[in-house]
Structure formats: C-alpha cells, structure tokens
Computed example of a mutant assay.
Amino acid sequence: MAISTYAVAVGGNRRGRHGTPRAEVRAALALLGGTPSPIIDTPPLGPSIRRFANAVTVIASAEPPAALLARLKTVERAAGRRAGRRWGARVLDLDIVLWSGGRLATRPLTLPHPAFRTRAFVLRPLLAVAPGWRDPVTGLRVRHLHARLTRARPINRPRGTW
C-alpha cells in the first residue's frame, strides 16, 4: 500500500469540549499527528465575527484522499461541528490542502484546495512546516506563494500628486 503525504489545514473559532478554539485546534493536531505548524490567530472571513485559531499539519497516510476526507469529517463532527452557514462560526474545520499525488478533481474533493493560494491563514502555517512543497497547479513552492500573497504592493497614485 502506497503512503501519501497530505497537508491538512486545521481551524476553528468556537469553544468546544476541549475549551477555547486554540485548545480545539491543539487537540485536533494531536489526534491527526504528523508535523504540526504553530497555531496562529486570524480574523474571520465571511459573516463570522469571532477570530480563528489556525494551523496546518503534514501527515503521512495510506488512505486515499477520499478516505482521508471522510475521516476528517468524522473528526469534525466528533468535535461538535454542525452543518450550518458557509463560513460561519465552527468548533473545528479540517481541509486537505495539498496531496503528494498532485491534482485530484472529484465531486466531493478538489486537490490542491482551490483557495489555499489566496489564504494567508493557510499559507503562513504551511510555510512553517512545508516551505518547499510545490503547488502542482502553478509549480510554485509554498514559500513563493506566501511571498506573493503577503508582499507589499505599491500604491497607485495619479502622476503629480506627490
């Protein structure tokens, strides 16, 4: 059985049975194993008003992507995740971001995660544990994706307004 490597994003912004969102993320990282990033605090996207605790872990597994996704959803439900509003508050959110097998496009799962390149709350922790991992779509390494996303952009001012 072939072993694959996965980068799994871990986040949450509601208290759960382990306590604070940071404690929930810490518990999920311990359960998943692998090489965890530091946990960072980030502002929410969408309608939620609560800050998120976010991290990434790099794990090795013999599970194919669909089986790992099913296991992650089971972990979310066990932590108290309930179906609800997209981008709303949640105890735990687990997403497969990258897979050593490259690309995958099925109905329940697209790899790499379609939005990971635009999310600093994923790229910053991923940078800590897998800076050299190449995005199979762009060919860029995680460190380059992070630099592109976070670099300062010049202010476009009309000529003669200095």
Rank of each mutant, 00 (worst) to 15 (best):
A79Y: 10
R119H: 10
H146R: 05
L149G: 05
A62E: 12
R15M: 12
A128H: 14
E76L: 05
R26C: 05
R50Q: 12
V75R: 13
L69Q: 10
L72H: 05
H146F: 15
P43C: 09
A78T: 13
D41L: 08
R159T: 13
T118M: 05
R14V: 11
A105V: 11
R157D: 04
R157K: 13
E76V: 13
A152D: 04
L92D: 01
K73P: 00
L109V: 01
R119Y: 15
P108F: 03
T106E: 09
V137G: 07
A28C: 05
T42D: 00
P125T: 14
Y6V: 15
I59A: 02
R77I: 15
W133K: 00
A27I: 00
L31Q: 06
L111V: 10
H144Q: 11
P131W: 06
A128N: 06
A55K: 07
R81L: 03
W133T: 15
L145W: 15
L149Q: 08
P158R: 04
E24Y: 00
R103H: 08
G132Q: 06
R119N: 03
I40L: 08
L92M: 06
I40H: 05
W133L: 12
R22I: 08
V142I: 14
N13K: 14
H144D: 15
P131K: 03
G46W: 04
T74S: 12
I39Y: 02
I3H: 00
L123C: 04
I59C: 03
L32N: 05
P136S: 07
A128S: 12
L45T: 00
A62V: 14
R103N: 08
T57Y: 11
A152F: 01
A23W: 04
W133D: 00
A83N: 03
P154H: 13
T5N: 00
P108Q: 01
L109C: 03
R14C: 14
A55F: 04
E76I: 11
A67F: 02
E63H: 13
L123Y: 06
T106G: 12
D95G: 11
A130S: 08
N156H: 10
T106R: 10
I39C: 06
G12W: 08
A2D: 05
L149A: 08
R107W: 02
F121H: 06
L32A: 07
R107H: 10
G101Y: 01
T110R: 12
L94Q: 14
G84D: 06
A30E: 09
G34D: 05
L68K: 13
P154W: 14
A89V: 05
S4K: 00
W87K: 07
E24S: 12
P158M: 08
L123P: 02
D95T: 06
G19F: 09
P131H: 02
R141E: 11
L31K: 01
W87L: 15
I49P: 02
V122L: 04
P64R: 15
I40R: 07
L104E: 06
L98G: 09
G80A: 11
P112Q: 01
A7N: 09
A83Q: 11
I49L: 12
R141P: 06
L29M: 05
R107D: 13
S61L: 02
L45Y: 15
G132A: 15
G16P: 00
I49E: 02
L69V: 11
R148W: 13
A27Y: 04
I155D: 01
S61E: 07
N54P: 10
A130H: 08
A9K: 12
R103A: 11
W162I: 07
P21Y: 01
